[in-house]
């Protein structure tokens, strides 16, 4: 039982390290540091009333571009690993309930995803959750049919298009104002309205389409390799 002892030892070390740290943690009573700066200046700087989106897309836009690259490499490796040697006998027929649900639900799910993605500067949401919800609609359509949906052929093109859009919107700022992903290349408009906050809605839309096409590609790759041996 050396294995169990080792596991207990690791957990004990973890707990001991944590007991020295936890007493120093206190629930914050006021906003300070970078968070306070973002909260005070975010609305004037970016025109986005949702400050989380302002941080993701405007202040930390370059980091978000890096995250999108991580997502792209993960999706590409999943497709590569699963497509090298096809395993199973492919997709099986859906059950009655799944087949009928897949005819009704994708439209409202897609509507929710479009709302999340386009209203990212106004309400909770943004490109990442919106894109994931879009991919879930695609997953439902795929589960409801016994073949891969015809739309999956254009997924790589959509992915490339949205990634390029993100990069070009960033470069637009570099060329006109000398700063990558500068939000003020178009006016920030009247905060609180749908058409406002500069390029934040456009970048959110690009992120949403990219995330949706990547996850749809992952689901399609799993679907193609599915089934038993």
């Amino acid at each position: 039982m050396i294995r169990t002892l080792f596991v207990l030892l690791v957990l004990l070390v973890l707990a001991a390290a944590a007991t020295s740290v936890i007493p120093h943690l206190k629930m914050r009573t006021e906003l300070d540091g970078a968070g306070l700066e973002y909260a005070r200046r975010g609305l004037e700087d970016t025109g986005s009333i949702n400050l989380v989106t302002a941080v993701i897309v405007a202040y930390r836009g370059l980091d978000t571009l890096g995250e999108v690259v991580v997502l792209f490499s993960a999706a590409t490796s999943v497709m590569l690993i699963l497509s090298l040697f096809p395993l199973g006998r492919g997709p099986t027929d859906p059950s009655f309930i799944v087949a009928h649900t897949a005819r009704v639900l994708p439209a409202p799910i897609m509507l929710l995803a479009v709302y999340f993605t386009t209203h990212s500067h106004l309400s909770p949401g943004g490109g990442f959750p919106g894109g994931t919800i879009m991919a879930s609609a695609f997953l439902l359509v795929m589960l409801g049919s016994s073949s891969t949906p015809a739309g999956s052929k254009i997924l790589p093109a959509l992915e490339a298009l949205s990634g390029t859009t993100f990069g070009l919107l960033g470069l637009w700022g570099t060329m006109t104002l000398g700063q990558f992903l500068n939000n003020r290349v178009i006016g920030i408009g009247n905060p609180g309205y749908l058409v406002s906050a500069g390029i934040i809605p456009l970048v959110s839309l690009a992120i949403g389409v990219k995330v949706a096409s990547e996850f749809s590609g992952i689901f399609a790759a799993f679907r193609k390799s599915g089934g038993n041996r």
Partner: peptide
């Protein structure tokens, strides 16, 4: 604080 929220939002997707 909006900054950790932004981190977590991307971390969930990654």
């Amino acid at each position: 604080d909006p900054l950790p929220h932004a981190l977590v939002l991307t971390s969930i997707v990654i």
